[in-house]
Each structure stands twice: as structure tokens, then as C-alpha cells.
Nucleic acid binder design. Structure first.
Lengths: 209, 209
DNA sequence: GTCTATATACGGATAGAC
DNA sequence: GTCTATCCGTATATAGAC
């Protein structure tokens, strides 16, 4: 007889498959991942993959949705928080991404690759436009701009800057490590430095001169 | 009889295959591209692909090397030019990338994905470390730092900033367009704006306060 | 050099026993 | 739920005629 606690100790078969699929899809993309590899990685039988998830594509859709949620959730929650200043939001966004991507460095390139190649228009189904462009942060920036506190600048530029400065180093990390002659530990240390540097840079950039 | 000028008018079969392979590999990656699609796209027979290039992988290696060269060549040439100031180099790098990526927006995510997934250690074969870290630009920055003109900062941070601010918007363009409710033309216009903005921001960031 | 036809292997998916 | 065995479509690659 299984006791309740077993559920936490050993993963269910379904969870094992999902975990393996998550790892492989994120690493090698949809086309580069074979269902046989997922089965082997999770230590289960190939037939069980179809038993639980019907098809490779259905399994992928689940993983992709998970990834997208993780990739976007932080920024949704942070930009809409009415209790923080826009400066604090910069710091919160940068910290959230750096902490997440330090653990999962493959995620952004996976998400952005699959969105880009996607033949089925995955991105069309999401309502991203309203959610971020109507966020509390955008209102704060508009107000700061109107009062002459910061430069007049398209908020999309600011978003590009925050995400570019924060996410790009992870996307380019193999190249950047090679160029800088860095080990993983050094790279991680640099990204920790950037938690302080990036918010300061962004403020500097938008400040009225 | 073929005249010399024909060589420019109609591509050779080999060139047609290469062009199609370039397009498809860059768009969909190695695993996502089928040799049949390359044949169809280039209007040639499938067997000719193997006749000219021996295998899919060999063809891919050619395309990849081309892409890498394009992706890195600008920065090599610019950072080592002894006739320009480091400020001018910022502008030249940003302009070169924005011009290139406006035409070939898929390139960076392709190159960086394939480098990341690469099982055969492609990146190890390149000597990137010495080429950029010993460049004229790095020396100029060190000198400016020693003389108190700019902040003391790891030049890798500066490289991350230039590339992140410039390249990331292209990598994330489908998402950013959706978020900002932009058409292609608007996005392109924004990137043209950034040709002026980014160099100014970088200078601002490193300036001694 | 270019084609048609085909060998060969691989990958996704299922049938059916346990 | 889980396994073995297998089907079947597809993808790379080649043989051989022209």
C-alpha cells in the first residue's frame, strides 16, 4: 500500500516524463528532441509517453505553456504592482530574471526560438499587448515623463533595454564566456554584479539631463 | 555557349542550394530543416544536394561557418581599427549590427542556438578570446579608465551592454512587436532610432561621475 | 551534371500481452 | 499502468540511367 507521503518522495510516471521532456525540449528544441530520448531520460517506456500525453506535440505544448508562463509571469506581476515605484520595479524585474536564468539558462533562447519558428502562430493566442502596455509601470513612467523627471522616451525602448541588458548575457553566454575566458562561476558572479548595475544604468539612461 | 556574364545573371546549382540552405537553416535550425525542403526551395533535385555537398551535415557546417563569420566579422574589424576612438567604435558596432539584422533578423538566434546546443563543441575551435580581449578597443577603454575619464568596469560588461541593447530586440522581436502593438515598419523605425540612442547610452553609462 | 528509383535507417505512434 | 513488438510514414543518402 502506498502512503500519502510517497507522492512527494517519488515522482509519478507522468511527472517523470514531464520533467525529462522539459529538460530536453528546453535544451534542444522541439525538432531536435526525440520521444525516445525523453523516454530514456525519464527511465520510462516509450509507449507510456503516448499513453499519458497522446503525442509528442501535445506534450510539447504543455511544456511550452509552462515555459511561457515562467518567462512572462514575473514581469506581469511586477509591472502591475501598485505599491512599488518604477525604480523599484526595475530592480525587481532584473533580479527575478537573473535568479531564474541562473538556474535555467536555456529557457529564453528556447522560448524565443520556438516563438520565432512557430508555424501555428502560438503568440497570437496570447494577449500580451494590453497586459504590459497598460501596466502600472507604464503609467508611472508616463507621469514621470510628463512632470519632467525623466526623458520622453518610448516605453518599449525601456523594455528592450531592461530585457536586453538582463537576458542577452544568458542567451550569448557560451560565446561571452569564451571571449572573456570565463568559467561558469565567474559568469554567474558577473550576473550577480549586474543585479545592481543594470537598474542603476536604466535610471541613468532615462534621467532628464 | 555560356557567356561570362551569365555567371552573375543565373546562379550555379551549387549556389542555389547554398542560398536555399542558408535561408532554411537560419530560419528553422539544423534539426528543423529537411533536405527535401532545401531541394524544393532551390528548385533543384534532391540527389544534387548530396552530389555537391556529400551530406546534410557537411552543408550545414558550411552555412554555419558563413553565419558565424558574418556575425563576428564586423566586431573584429571595428574593435581593432586603430584610427577610431572608442566612442566611434560604439557607433560603428551598433550601426553594423542593426543594418545587418534588419535584413537578417533570424541570424543571431540561429547562431546562438546552434552554438548552445552544439554537441561537437563548435565554439572550441574558434579563437575568440584573444581576438577581442586584446583588441584596440579594449586598450582604449583601459587607458580611459586609468586616466579617470570613465568608470572602472569589466570590459565584458560593456560588451554585454552593447550587444544586449543592439541584438536582443531582434531576438525578441515577435514578442516585442506583440507587446508594443507594432507593425514591422514601426519596429524597423525604432531600431533606426536606436542607432543614435545606444551609443549615447553606453557613453553615459561608463562616464565617470 | 541531372534525373528517377530505391535502399536504409529513424522516429512517432499503436496493438496487444501481462 | 507498463511492457514488447511492430507498423508506417518520413528523412537521408545512394545507385544507376541518361
Amino acid at each position: 500500500m502506498k502512503r500519502k507521503i510517497d507522492k512527494q518522495l517519488d515522482q509519478s510516471t507522468e511527472e517523470k516524463i514531464k520533467a525529462a521532456a522539459y529538460k530536453l525540449f528546453t535544451q534542444k528544441g522541439y525538432a531536435g528532441t526525440r520521444t525516445r530520448d525523453i523516454a530514456e531520460e525519464s527511465g520510462i517506456n516509450l509507449a507510456l509517453l503516448n499513453y499519458y500525453f497522446r503525442s509528442k506535440e501535445k506534450l510539447f505544448d504543455l511544456i511550452m505553456a509552462d515555459n511561457m508562463k515562467q518567462f512572462m509571469f514575473g514581469i506581469f506581476a511586477i509591472t502591475n504592482d501598485e505599491k512599488t515605484s518604477y525604480e523599484e520595479k526595475f530592480t525587481l524585474i532584473v533580479n527575478a530574471y537573473i535568479d531564474m536564468l541562473t538556474i535555467q539558462p536555456d529557457m529564453p533562447i528556447f522560448v524565443l526560438s520556438e516563438i520565432r519558428y512557430d508555424p501555428s502562430g502560438l503568440i497570437e493566442k496570447m494577449q500580451l499587448d494590453s497586459t504590459i502596455m497598460n501596466s502600472h509601470m507604464i503609467k508611472q513612467l508616463k507621469q514621470a515623463s510628463d512632470s519632467g523627471e525623466i526623458e520622453e522616451i518610448n516605453p518599449i525602448h525601456i523594455l528592450m533595454n531592461i530585457l536586453g541588458l538582463t537576458i542577452f548575457p544568458f542567451i550569448g553566454s557560451p560565446l561571452l564566456k569564451k571571449i572573456g575566458g570565463m568559467e561558469d562561476a565567474q559568469f554567474t558572479a558577473m550576473m550577480q554584479e549586474r543585479k545592481k548595475l543594470i537598474p542603476a544604468w536604466i535610471k541613468e539612461i532615462i534621467k532628464k539631463k
